[in-house]
Amino acid sequence: MDIRFLESFVEVVDCGSIADAARYLNLTPAAVAQRLKAIERELGHSLVSRAGRTVRPTESGLAVLARARQLIAGARDLRAIAANDQPVGALRLGSTATGLTGLLPAVIASLSQRCPRIEFFVRPGSSLDLYHSVMSGETDAAVVVQPPFHIPKSMGWVTLREEALVLIVPEAMEAGTPESIIGSAPFIRYDRNQWGGQIVERYLRKHRLKVREWLELDALDSIAALVSRGLGVAIVPDWSPPWPEGLRLRKIVLGDGEPRKVGVVWSLASPRIAAIRAFVETCGEACR
C-alpha cells in the first residue's frame, strides 16, 4: 500500500474537499481523486462519499481513519530513523500567535535552506494546549510561554527571549503614574487562563492594584487595537514584533514586573530528534 495514497485520503477528510486537499498536497484534483479510487479498490470499500463539492468519510472511511494516521506517522518516523541522525522528515511544530508572526517565519526560512529534507507542519494554539501536545507526542516542539511549573526530564526547554511587562495606554491619554492610570482607566485584562495573563495577575496582586475591569481577552493584538481606539488600558508583555500596524498608543515599561519568558519545549524521545535539534538551534540564532 502506497503511504502517499493514505496521506491523500486523510487530507481529503481533513479538508472536506478534494480541491482543497489537492492544493495542500500540491497535486491536481484529478490526481487526488485517482489516489482515492486506487486505495478504495485495494481495501475493497468506499472510503468517502461526495455531496456536491463536499466530501465526507463513509463508515468504512471512519473505521480506518485513525489507523491510517498511525501508519502515516510511522512511515515518517521510519524515514527519520533511517536517516542516521540527519535532520530529515516531517517536523510537527506548534506556536503561540506571537511566535507565529514574530519568530517562525524567519526560523523556517533559514532552516529550509540549511535542511531542505525537513517537512514542516505548524499548529497554532495556546501555550498550555501546545505543551500538552508536545508531552503526548502529537507535536515534536513548540514555541510557548515558559510553564509556571517544573518541566519533566523527558522534555527539553530553552529560553529564547524575555519580554518585559508594559502598560499600554492610548496615545492621547494624559501622563500619570502607572498606578494612577491603572486605577482610574477602564482595564482590558490579558486572559488569566493564559500563562502570560497569570504573570499580569501576579503583578496586580503584588502591587495591590484594583482595576476597573470590563473586558478579558486572550489575543494580544486585539488588546492593543482596543487600547489604540481609546477604549481602555492594559498590561501586556512587550512581545516580539510585528505589532499591528497603525497603533496609536504608548508603552510604559513596568520595571519591577516579572518578564514573560518565551522559549521552545520539545520531546527528547522523538525519532525526529535531529530535526528538532536543528530547529531549536535555528530559533536560538534567530533570537540572538
Rank of each mutant, 00 (worst) to 15 (best):
A31Q: 12
P124E: 11
D238T: 00
S127W: 02
V48L: 07
E258F: 00
R76P: 01
G196E: 06
A63H: 11
L91Y: 05
V227Y: 03
C283A: 06
L93E: 03
P148I: 00
R229Y: 06
A75H: 14
G52H: 01
M1A: 12
A30I: 14
E42F: 04
F121Q: 11
W239P: 00
M135D: 13
L36Q: 10
A109M: 07
A90N: 12
L71N: 00
M173L: 15
R260F: 02
P186M: 10
F187S: 13
E285W: 06
V144R: 00
R277G: 04
L215I: 11
D191H: 13
C115D: 07
P57F: 08
L160G: 05
G44E: 11
L27M: 15
A22N: 06
M135V: 12
H45D: 11
E179L: 08
K261S: 12
E119I: 09
A75M: 07
S17V: 02
R212S: 13
T282Y: 02
P186Y: 09
Y24K: 15
A97R: 14
L209W: 02
R114N: 08
Q113K: 13
V166A: 08
V200R: 05
A219N: 15
L62I: 09
G99H: 07
R189P: 13
A225R: 15
R76M: 10
S133Q: 11
R23L: 15
P241M: 04
L165N: 06
Y24G: 01
V144H: 00
N26M: 08
R288A: 13
K37A: 14
S267I: 00
A73L: 12
A51Y: 09
T58E: 02
Q198K: 14
L226N: 06
D85H: 11
P116H: 09
A141S: 06
A219C: 12
D14N: 15
R50L: 11
L103I: 14
P57Y: 03
V107I: 04
S240W: 10
E174Y: 01
S267V: 01
T177M: 04
G196P: 08
S49E: 14
S228I: 06
A73G: 02
G257N: 03
K210C: 10
V253N: 02
R123P: 00
R248Q: 12
M1D: 04
R67I: 01
L47Q: 06
R76T: 08
A21I: 08
F187R: 07
P29I: 05
A51E: 15
P124T: 11
L43C: 04
P87M: 03
G99S: 06
V265F: 10
S95G: 14
T282D: 05
P271M: 07
L226M: 14
A22K: 03
E258I: 02
V227G: 06
F187P: 15
P241N: 12
E216A: 14
A73C: 02
E119C: 03
R288N: 10
